[in-house]
Amino acid sequence: MTDKLTKRDTPARDTSVAMVKAEGVHKSFGQVEVLKGIDLEVRPGEVFCLIGPSGSGKSTFLRCINHLEKINAGRLYVDGELVGYRQQGDKLYELRDREVAVKRRDIGMVFQRFNLFPHMTALENVIEAPVQVKGLNKGQARERAMQLLERVGLADRAGHYPSQLSGGQQQRVAIARALAMDPKLMLFDEPTSALDPELVGDVLDVMRDLAESGMTMVVVTHEMGFAREVGDSLVFMDDGVVVESGNPREVLTNPQHERTQSFLSKVL
């Protein structure tokens, strides 16, 4: 994806601005506090891995980043801009649905259960948002979509419906669908957890390729091998807080915190 690389190299992008910045992010569902003050920073171009036990709030945090969930306290910035609000003076104004939708165009999301549109073919899934949201004409969108499907190794499946694809293929189409919007940030929520073991590799290969092209990625995963090889930073979350963070190779081989140690001993 050369266009992505050139985009990143343009001087307009200030690389000192964090792609994602969380300051004391809190999120509750009713009485239950799920995120209890998350602080972290994702730098542009970085592959940022998020690990932790089930129920620790990883998905919730990811969903806060593109405002699928509203945070209750703290501040969350994407590319220097507040998520879901506009600040004027010391007052916060909630963004309208339309404004939120515009911001989401720049953030791709890949779900654990793929969530492809079942009534559309692979190709139609990929061109849907460029045509409907960005207003691209169908011909352009189709051409670009075919390139993306090629890139994830599925050009020959363009006319297949999701039900006619394996889980791994569906997930790769889902990645192509997210990339079709030319996002500056990609969020992955356990992209390989719903896959049969022999299909995991193909999806990870696509993600690795994407990382090499310079995409900023926040990846919730249980694939420690991927985190170690591809990750630039890693955060271990437990019970709604960041317990430990650092270089993935260091954290994974030499965890400092007792909770990290016990988690890793279970999954490794």
Binding site: L68, A101, F111, H119
Partner: peptide, 27 residues
């Protein structure tokens, strides 16, 4: 219709109306 469908559409930047018309109603 699975909630994940609405979520995926919103994550792509589709508005409520478009999501309903293009994704939810056809299913």
């Amino acid at each position: 219709v699975d909630e994940g469908q609405t979520e995926a559409a919103h994550a792509l930047g589709m508005s409520h109306g478009k999501t309903l018309r293009r994704i939810v109603i056809p299913q």
